[in-house]
Amino acid sequence: MINIIKRFINKVLKNIFKKKSHVKLGLYGPPNAGKTTMANRICKDWLGEEMGTVSNVAHETREITIKEQINIKNNGKEITFSLVDTPGIATKIDYEEFMKAGMKEDTAKKRAKEATKGVIDAIKWLDDMDAVIVVLDATADPYTQVNITIIGNLAAREIPVMIVANKIDLKKANIKKIEAAFPQYPVVGVSAKYGKHIDDFYEALFSLVG
């Protein structure tokens, strides 16, 4: 009940300040979907610099990182937003998986501890977002509970959502499967790493928050 009242007040306040100059745009998704690669692509395109480090080992991003005042222009339209890159949301974190990737036990345990805190922070930040890009790995099964929980929570909070099907440069990529799993949301297939179809993404972003 308290949550419903809190959300109602937030919504009313949001409407009052609807004409604010920029929005808080979150990047959410499971680990290793390419959220930071996507954040880097956006920042490189519009600010000329990267936002964070990427790695093949899961949970590379373990803290919320924010890039303020990103201004993008498309067909005479313009939007300014703060980009919030979040740690990947997971239901399990096993330090032994990091050891398999070549880390020493102490380092692996430290990484696991930081990763759990990162997931908690990412969930806490859900309420602060104005719009969210859910980044999914187009080569992976989209019907995971983490994906469903993230998107379900955004819907429950009435936060506008766009899905980015990332890694379309890979042979196994299947955008149609993601579209079938989440038919009520716009899905844009991109390769954040190589910039493939990134213009389609910016166009969709204007529709989402413009």
Binding site: K92, I123, N153, A155, A156
Partner: peptide, 12 residues
């Protein structure tokens, strides 16, 4: 849905 997210948070 909110309870699912809370379950993940509590698990972490």
């Amino acid at each position: 849905k909110e309870e699912e997210a809370e379950l993940i948070r509590a698990t972490m």
